[in-house]
Design a protein around this nucleic acid. Structure first.
Length: 467
RNA sequence: GUCCCCAUCGUCUAGAGGCCUAGGACACCACCCUUUCAAGGUGGAGACACGGGUUCGAACCCCGUUGGGGACGCCA
């Protein structure tokens, strides 16, 4: 049997980080087994679904490189099919029309809570009632008949065997009074029609699994294998909710994170492979296994994500990073000369170990991006105004002008020789030099900077700093 | 309230009865490296929620307590 998984978000908000992890696990599980990973947009609630949210989900998944197989399906397009199944169930006596009003339901809810708080709300009053007694002018809903006694056990790939007595399950609605299918019905029918073999989702759906299992059975279909993964919690331990700072994946993109860092982080949240921390996509596909998914919720830790991001930044190709930085520069309205662009790429190795995200990288790279009259920060100005800095720089510039080769090692040698000849500490030479060349007191190795800048630009900045 | 799930350093986790005086990672501290800042290297502090069993032996198995989470919609 070939494995088919699906990610089924409802487009009522953005693709949040928990959803991204659910998608990741579905993707990995399918790929690990050589199966297919499908995407289904659960837009049965037409009022709350937005096109904007759909685009955000599609974009988020693409950014994370969680490519789904085939076209995405839209649940709302299958409403006729859902209705047909409901009617079929009705014809077979496995479902029935219920004429209860919202007020009656509210009463039942109240009653259930008062008399011990049972989970079973609806009392099944229309289950065996003669339809002839139906009140006029009330559009009925269709409810599925759930077993009255006994118990149901779900063999969950993550949670293990979970058993629940059937008297806690009430006859739930599968078709609304306006004829539209509910989520419960739509999920079951679509999973069946799409050939889904494994439903991997957040464990907030664990309770639904019992209901859906009986719906599958009523339809005469085999229930897919369930895997309910724990939710991601915020730093405070509570469910990561929208109002609680849960961000869409696009927010992480905007914060300067790399998609592979986000995926790696999400993968290790609740799943592990021995002591491995840095895991590539290929390794993840090879190693991923639902059996190693933990059963307890994990808290989201921005520091660890940042650390992983710093790691992947160091691994990333300079050209790719340069493109991201140039986009930042463009957004800031900065024009970058071709020469500066070259410097940026050449200087990337020295920049990248100093940044945790692409915005920091952008900030760090500004002295490469601009041409000669560069902006100076206060500390750089102080260094330049310091005792004899101008004189040191001018003497060094002269010495540099005579350099026969222009590379990091040679430059390093020249500077050391120069400092020694004047009985100065290297730092006394390097700091003013750094200030003049980068406009800052902090930068990559100043010799690397000179090598990247080239002789002309270096000398020009030195000249400029003395004026 | 009812049902379901969970419980190892601050956080993510390894651990599937003896390999555990509990390992790794992030964060934290110190030192080293060093022209600055990072990165890197070395070291340090830091956990089996509690109480009962079972067993020659329990972080691992069972029960209970406590704590946390999730679900109880004509939302998904």
């Amino acid at each position: 049997m070939s494995v088919v998984t699906r990610f089924a978000p409802s487009p009522t908000g953005f693709l949040h980080i928990g959803g991204a992890r659910t998608a990741l696990f579905n993707y990995l599980f399918a790929k690990h087994h050589g199966g297919r990973f499908l995407l289904r947009i659960e837009d049965t609630d037409r009022k709350r679904s937005t096109d904007e949210a759909i685009q955000a989900i599609l974009h988020g998944l693409s950014w994370l490189a969680l490519d789904w197989d085939g076209d995405e399906t839209y649940q709302s397009h299958n409403a006729d099919r859902h209705r047909e199944v409901a009617e079929q169930l009705l014809a077979e006596g496995k479902a029935y029309r219920c004429y209860c009003t919202p007020e009656e339901l509210a009463e039942m809810r109240e009653k259930a809570r008062e008399s011990g708080g049972s989970t079973r709300i609806y009392d099944g009053r229309w289950r065996d009632r003669d339809p002839a007694e139906a009140p006029a002018g009330v559009d009925p809903v269709i409810r599925i008949k759930m077993p009255l006694d006994g118990e149901t056990t779900i063999a969950d790939l993550v949670q293990g065997e979970v058993t629940r007595t059937n008297d806690t399950l009430d006859d739930f609605i599968i078709l609304r009074s306006d004829g539209s299918p509910t989520y419960m019905l739509a999920v079951v029918v679509d999973d069946q029609d799409m050939g889904v073999t494994h439903a991997i989702r957040g464990d907030d759906h664990l309770n639904n699994a019992f209901r859906q299992h009986h719906l599958f059975a009523a339809c005469g279909w085999e229930t897919p294998v369930f895997a309910h993964i724990p939710l991601i919690h915020g730093a405070d331990g509570a469910k990561l909710s929208k109002r609680h700072g849960a961000l869409g994946v696009e927010a992480y993109e905007e914060m300067g994170f790399l998609p592979e860092a986000v995926c790696n982080y999400l993968l290790r949240l609740g799943w592990s492979h021995g002591d491995d921390e840095i895991i590539s996509r290929d390794q993840a596909i090879e190693w991923f296994d639902l059996a190693n998914v933990g059963r307890s919720p994990a808290r989201f830790d921005m520091d660890k994500l940042s650390n992983l991001n710093a790691h992947y930044l160091k691994d990333a190709a300079p050209l790719r990073l340069a493109a991201i930085i140039l986009a930042d520069a463009e957004a800031a309205g900065t024009t970058v000369s071709p020469a500066a662009e070259e410097r940026l790429v050449a200087g990337m190795p020295g920049l990248v170990s100093r940044a945790k995200n692409t915005h920091e990288l952008y900030d760090l790279s500004k002295f490469y991006l601009s041409d000669t009259p560069i902006t100076m920060n206060n500390k750089a100005r102080d260094a330049l105004d310091g005792d004899g800095a101008h004189e040191v720089l001018s003497a060094l510039a002269e010495r540099l002008g005579e350099a026969t080769s222009w590379n990091e090692d040679a430059l390093d040698g020249i500077a050391r020789e120069f400092a020694e000849s004047r009985d100065m500490k290297l730092g006394k030479v390097a700091q003013p030099l750094r200030a003049a060349l980068t406009g800052s007191n902090v930068s990559p190795s100043i010799f690397e900077v000179m090598a990247v800048l080239g002789r002309d630009e270096t000398l020009a900045r030195l000249e400029n700093a003395r004026n």
